[in-house]
Design a protein around this nucleic acid. Structure first.
Lengths: 195, 195
DNA sequence: TAGATTGTTAATCGATTAACAATC
DNA sequence: TAGATTGTTAATCGATTAACAATC
């Protein structure tokens, strides 16, 4: 969005944004209302101002440290996901329960044991945690995160977490994705054979 | 769900399932309606039957081959994701545009160029595709997949795809996850400093 | 018969979209 | 003034939840 907008003109309309993002203009305007972005009727939104406001709203002004628990394949891949840098995030704490993994280094970061979570999370004021453990560990890990001051959790496990409601949870259930993909493919084949 | 259910008893109620999955019983019953699962009032659902029906519905009876395009970090990690095996899926085609990557082997699978997609996809009757390319490539890759007979796409890119409506698309937008996580953390800090 | 749980309809909720007066 | 686009309200839609007669 920024990319495209910046070069062309200093103002952009909500429907223009919408077209590029694949949503109707009304939705864009509603979303921008979240942080009270002001547009000028018949002109649009000032691109640079909008971008600044959006960055402030998303908290992208200063870099943010993140704790990741569960240094399996998925955990390792995420640790290297370039999106983090884009959003000013950096995984600074990489934890695992498995004593075999503790001590080894991934992407310049040493895997530590769960016991250091409370200390380091508070010291670095970590607010964001990522869970890539087996499903059975997720609830416990989440509770430990919350106890350590984390208030925003990205859960890659199929486990539904029960946590205080002020904690934000984003579920990223890859298994659900697989199930759906498989179901749609199966459905397609059923329809195809019946004809 | 299966795990817990199988051992205990031969019947299970919708609210029992719901409790374990973290959703109300009514929702479970409604979901089970998708494949016309029959329960017995005052008894519940026959566990083994339910499981069989669910497996058939999800298309888990026989193994399914999958094509993955974009052999970056995320692609590599996904290729090793244990969930695939659980859902009877196997990535059998690993493609990338980058000539540098073509030929190298990941998890016993050779990275091939995009040109082989039509041939192999049709030969193996691939129905499921995964896109882990840069966002700018996604639309093109998706179109090539559809042309090659794929009808179910898992898109890890933030790009909204425009494809024939019979094609199923599941978006797994990790950037959106990051943005949300960051926004919630920023919001929390704003609230905290204002008090 | 009494108790439990289904299958399904109606009510609720939130999110998306349409529409349009206000205004640049 | 005429044309364009906002900000916001109302309509629509789909998904979730509540409720309850039917039934084992």
């Amino acid at each position: 969005l920024k990319h495209a907008a910046e070069q062309e003109s200093s103002y952009i309309s909500s429907s223009e944004i919408g077209r590029k993002a694949g949503v109707p203009g009304a939705q864009v305007r509603k979303d921008l209302l979240c942080f009270k972005a002001k547009g000028r009727p018949s002109v649009g939104f000032h691109v640079l101002t909008l971008r600044k406001d959006l960055e402030r709203y998303l908290g992208l002004e200063h870099s943010r440290s993140v704790a990741l628990v569960g240094a399996g394949n998925l955990g390792k891949a995420l640790a290297q996901f370039p999106g983090f840098a884009q959003y000013g995030m950096k995984i600074t704490l990489l934890l695992d329960k498995d004593p075999q993994k503790i001590g080894s280094v991934i992407g310049g970061l040493e895997i530590k044991g769960m016991d250091v979570l409370p200390l380091i999370a508070k010291e670095k004021r970590l607010k964001i945690g990522i869970i890539t453990t087996p499903a059975s560990e997720a609830q416990l890990v989440a509770e430990q995160m919350v106890a350590a001051g984390i208030i925003s959790i990205w859960n890659f496990t199929p486990t539904r977490l029960s946590l205080p409601e002020e904690v934000f949870i984003r579920y990223e259930d890859l298994s659900a994705g697989l199930a759906l993909l498989s179901q749609k493919a199966a459905e397609f084949e059923r329809n195809h054979n019946h004809e």
